[in-house]
């Protein structure tokens, strides 16, 4: 019993420490973000690694998620004779939830883990210390550009995911099954609101981008500088970012759609 309480206490204290460190780290990073924008080529490089290299997985997953939505949506809707609502179902599911959330989860495991691994290995091989010794701040030169690269990539990736998903749903619904093309798009346009659905989706993915990128760079920077420590940090990045994305999604959804 005492042991249990002690473990609980230990976990709590550790957790609070971590959150405190992460917050201080975030502020240090924001303070040193000047070079990420003044020398934008640093951030462009990270946009390539976080954004461009995630494109394939985002496009392929988006297409499949959209096609599955098309099939399942049609199967359910045709029982009520409302196949015409297929466009709305596909677009609303993607824009409000699946686009931002699934894209963020994929982003965490593709780009987030890569960022953690890169920073962790740089720390383990003393590259960060070496940079610090050359009077170049590693937070400004290495960490902040990776953070901003992730933050900027995420909304674009989520938008691409949703778009490809809508096209995938259209392909299954209209081309394969034969729902009327005009009905598909007009029903969609009627039920989707620009501010309510599109903008909120972008806001969500932007928030997820902050969360995942912060966790990824922090875990890399904070890792134990050994091979084992780096691999543990990568696992933590994927697990923590996934949980964080789902929790944030719940909070954001309840504010965006239920609060009124």
């Amino acid at each position: 019993m005492i042991q249990l309480l002690r473990t609980l206490g230990h976990l709590t204290v550790d957790g609070v420490w971590q959150v405190g460190f992460a917050t201080r780290f975030l502020f240090a990073m924001l303070r040193h973000s000047g070079p990420s924008f003044a020398r934008f080529s640093l951030t462009i490089r990270e946009l390539y690694f976080s954004g461009v290299l995630s494109l394939v997985i985002i496009v392929v997953s988006g297409a499949f998620v959209g096609m599955v939505l098309g099939l399942q949506g049609y199967d359910t809707l045709q029982r009520f004779g409302s196949e015409s609502a297929l466009g709305s179902i596909v677009a609303l599911s993607l824009l409000r939830e699946l686009g931002p959330v699934v894209a963020a989860l994929l982003f965490a495991s593709r780009a987030g883990s890569a960022v953690t691994a890169e920073i962790g290995l740089m720390k383990a091989t003393e590259q960060l210390t070496a940079m610090d010794m050359m009077a170049v701040n590693p937070i400004a030169r290495v960490v902040a550009p990776r953070f901003w690269g992730g933050v900027l990539s995420m909304p674009l990736l989520a938008a691409i995911f949703s778009t490809v998903g809508v096209i995938g749903g259209w392909f299954i619904g209209v081309v394969v099954i034969g729902v009327d093309n005009g009905t598909f798009w007009s029903q969609m346009a009627n039920s989707v609101d620009f501010r309510e659905d599109v903008v909120n989706g972008v806001v969500k993915s932007f928030v997820f981008g902050w969360a995942v990128s912060l966790i990824a760079v922090f875990q890399g920077y904070d890792c134990t500088p050994t091979a084992e420590g780096v691999s543990r940090a990568i696992t933590k990045t994927v697990v923590y970012s996934s949980l964080m994305v789902l929790a944030l999604d719940f909070i954001l959804t309840s504010f965006m759609y239920i609060g009124k």
Binding site: L121, M122, T125, E126, Q127, T129, A130, M131, D132, M133, M134, A135, N137
Partner: peptide, 19 residues
């Protein structure tokens, strides 16, 4: 400190080259 470090050089145990 950074101003002082510009006048220093340091060689690390395994080189610490940027990979």
């Amino acid at each position: 400190l950074y101003a002082l470090r510009r006048r220093m050089g340091m060689l690390f145990q395994f080189g610490a080259l940027f990979t």
